[in-house]
């Protein structure tokens, strides 16, 4: 780590500005002194610190506009999403909806507290926090396993990393207006595993897990409390790339509450031999579907009570 001895005190001859590195300062003095000080500080700062003025100020708590239940927030759930599914995956989806209507969980993996994965986490579950470092754009969410790292350090996609529900995300900042401030973050995510669904209706992605997700986050200085995220999904369950725009709104509460949302807490779903069951309030196993048989207890010596 380099040291900035000069930041401790810069005393111009006119006695105009003493810059101590603290947050309070006096800015006065001759133009020459000001210019010299500016140049020195810029050099020191650029040598040692992340220039956060180039990045949008995203401090605060963000939530999804339109809620997080549906992938396309402004369309009805389920078939109303009008997902461009292939006939094969449309059939899988409809079978899943039928199972859910009968009390099952269909193809939604988050019932069992598995990560929603990509692209579903872009729905914006819970309260989100965006933290920017030069190397990584962090999206922090306490939901199931939703927190993401989007690497912006110029790396290539690795070839030897195990697939994951969230995949590997690599992004790059863009200054579209040429004003020295980044206003777009483009991201690509690959290397996913499954099963994954677009939302809680179980809208499925392909079992081959060859999904690629591209995102374009737009940060508008004129509307700094809204972020747009244009999400494009390339997946073999789809007949074409599916483009959906998500939007997130910021709360201006200076000390927002970050809820610890624990999936397993108060989760009354269990699965035995691939079958879903419920747990009653007293902790006893119950059928999830009409006519559902109880689990096979052949390995227990004692008869059930």
């Amino acid at each position: 780590m380099t040291r900035n001895d000069a930041e401790i005190g810069v005393v111009p001859t006119s006695g105009a500005a003493v810059i101590t590195g603290r947050t309070t300062m006096r800015c006065s003095g001759s133009i020459g002194v000001v210019a010299f000080s500016a140049a020195l500080l810029v050099k020191i700062a650029s040598a040692t610190a992340h220039d956060e003025t180039k990045y949008p100020d995203l401090r605060g708590q963000w939530t999804a506009i339109g809620g997080s239940v549906r992938y396309v927030p402004d369309k009805p759930r389920g078939l109303g999403q009008e997902a461009p599914l292939t006939p094969e995956y449309q059939a899988i989806f409809e079978a899943n909806l039928k199972d859910m209507a009968e009390g099952g969980q269909g193809t939604d993996p988050t019932t069992w507290c598995l990560s929603p994965g990509m692209p579903r986490v872009t729905n914006g579950y819970g309260e989100m926090e965006f933290v920017i470092t030069p190397e990584t754009f962090h999206i922090l969410v306490f939901h199931v396993f939703d927190s993401r790292r989007i690497f912006t350090d110029g790396r290539d996609f690795p070839t030897d990393v195990d697939p994951s529900f969230l995949g590997i995300s690599i992004g790059r900042w863009i200054d579209t207006k040429g004003d020295g401030h980044y206003d777009v973050l483009e991201v690509e995510t690959r290397n996913m595993k499954g099963p994954r669904a677009f939302d809680a209706s179980g809208l499925p992605l392909h079992a081959d897990n060859q999904t690629i997700v591209k995102e374009r986050y737009t940060f508008d200085k004129n509307d700094p409390d809204v972020i747009s995220n244009e999400v494009t999904v390339f997946d073999h369950a789809l007949t074409r790339p599916w483009i959906v725009t998500k939007r997130y709104r910021r709360s201006r509460n200076p000390h927002p509450w970050w809820i610890e949302d624990n999936c397993m807490e108060n989760n009354y779903h269990i699965r035995i031999q691939g079958e879903p069951y419920f747990l009653s309030a007293e902790g006893m196993i119950m059928p999830a579907k009409k006519g559902q048989r109880p689990p096979d207890l052949r390995y227990f010596n004692q008869p059930p009570k």
Binding site: L297, N301, K305
Partner: peptide, 27 residues
Amino acid sequence: LRADGLLMPAKKDQPPPDLRYFKHDTK
């Protein structure tokens, strides 16, 4: 849960889960 998905006890002589809620639904 065994590899075949069937439930088994974790402890010696552990009683099986109470299935009272299945009485009316079992065939």
